[in-house]
Amino acid sequence: MQEMQEICLYRELVFRRLLFISLFLILCIVLSLLNLSIGPISIGIGEIFHTLITQGNDTAHVVIWDYRLPWTLMALLVGGALGLAGLEMQTILNNPLASSYTLGISAGAGFGAALAYILGIKVLPNVPMEFVVPINAFVFAFLTCMLIMLIGKIRGFTSETLVLGGIAISFMFQSLLALLEYYASEETLQAIVFWLFGSLTKASLFKAQVVFIVLAIVATLLMLKSWKITALRLGDEKAKSLGVNTERLRIEVLIYVSLLTSVAICFVGIIGFVGLVAPHMARMLIGEDQRFLIVGSILCGGVILSAGAITSKVIVPGAIFPIGIITSMLGVPFFMFLVIRGRKQIW
């Protein structure tokens, strides 16, 4: 009897988590369907499904396959990638306010993109124009991560070193970016600003596939480490005492996160606050057990960015409101809330 009770307790914990994960999953599906069905051209839900399973060249097919589906999938996947990347950054840096900004990854990506726009510097030759900017952004985002890694190698992988290193790198890239902007022509400058703002209008099915593959691989790899990452939340000493090689784990997770963040932001530009808010929401509802939190953060990020994507379409039907502004409007109050409530409640 007693034994049953204990197992019940564990089941109860798992059940609660699965419940919230299912809830997020349902929300993802509902929001994605909404995303697919909202647009200036009205297409009935039945026709949408029909269009999705058939091939054709009519307006409905073009609208669904070429515009709405990439947009919807990109919102879901980039949101998920940013959510997961944010979660693991917060975990390995032991800092509730960590995000791709904190580590300077966004600034690095922005600099890479600007370099492509202004100087026409391609890091890879012979790529189509559409991918020059993303590839540059990706390479620089990833280089930034390697730079942080280098700092970690020299000074040790404590959260303080990484956060301070990230801030330093961030400032460095921001000033380099400012320098580039100073020499940029008017239109190039506008193109850079537009890129930095982030936009889902750059979505395509191919890009969505790339993000999906990277997200799936990284999530699986992190899943295999889920207990060790959870142990990090007990504090470094504790984790070490449990036999976790915290330094190696940090490096490993940092590489995964770098890859994920770089891929997510290189296609859509910098969309702020999703990576900050999603993991916190998931953590509050699901708890720290990474086996569930990894999935929860991905889904929660997907929910947030999908909701943002819908909002950006419906504020003025026919126009696209900048999604970065929407996520910031959601994120900034949440950020303030985190700062004011402090660690006790949420972290």
Binding site: L13, T230, R233, G235, L242, R283, G287, E288, W347
Partner: peptide, 16 residues
Amino acid sequence: IPGILTVYEVVLLGRI
């Protein structure tokens, strides 16, 4: 214990 972990989980983590 910084994270949001139940007592049950903290103890369970000992079996890592």
